[in-house]
Amino acid sequence: MSNHAPYIRQPASVRSIMLKVLAALLPGIAAYVWWFGAGVLVQIALASAAALAGEAAMLALRRKPLWLFLGDGSALVTAWLIALCFPADGPWWLVVAAALFAIVAVKHFFGGLGRNAFNPAMAAYCLMLVVTPQWMSESQSPVAGQEWQWVALGYLLGGLWLIRQRVITWHIPTAFLVALTAIAGGFHVFNPAAYAGVEFYLLSNSAMLGAFFIATDPVTGATTPRGKLFYAGGIAVLTWSIREFDIYPDGIALATLLMNSCAPLIDRCTQPPVFGNKIEPPAA
């Protein structure tokens, strides 16, 4: 059996995409280390090891080609995101458990790479929020502060580079940030005492990470251009509501999961018109 046309392929691969995402996280990580010390590196290492181990075990169990999938880098992306979202001063087992849960339960129980309905990192974050709230809330939660602004800036830089590299499109980050600014700014102007200001949101660790790295996960998000705008806007609004009306300081994980479940519906409703059907064709 030979393959059919086209006989030539562009070099990009899943692996190269994932590696670019990892590379784009580096400026943020560097700022993190600069301001908060090397603790986060340990977290990253632990999460990566756990994720890779979990991935390898699941691949072996499911009889999938081990090296092909292990080398695709998707487990590492999940692991790094977990490590960056979790408190850097939490116990070591927190990230390990989260990474294992993300890979084994959220990714592989749904069918592995490309089949998971929910963002593994965010699902793990939510689980840990429920199971071990004491560890998640009392730590240095990612709030806005002089130092965090630098980390956020690092993520912003990495994210812009990803757009330039055409790994992600502008739709999701822009819609997310615009929607967040609009809703937070609006309520703040309306009642500055009750609602936090725009900068509190935009310059927090999670907003930039969310805009460029979490909401842009293609597998679990919307894929049509219009759909992406709704999807990211939805995450921003939910993030803000959860934050303002609820107990959790950081609503982005829940918001992402909620919108993940809407993504297929959003996609279905926002199919772009196909070639030749953008305007009403003339009568025969």
């Binding site: 899943v14 995409i17 092909l68 998707s74 069918g111 490309g114 089949r115 293609p218 049509t224 772009p272």
Partner: peptide, 18 residues
């Protein structure tokens, strides 16, 4: 590999398909 829904194909499609 499995489709990761990256949307590259949709951006390359001249017929504006998904």
């Amino acid at each position: 590999m499995p489709c990761i829904r990256c949307g590259d194909c949709a951006r390359a499609c001249p017929a504006d398909l998904q």
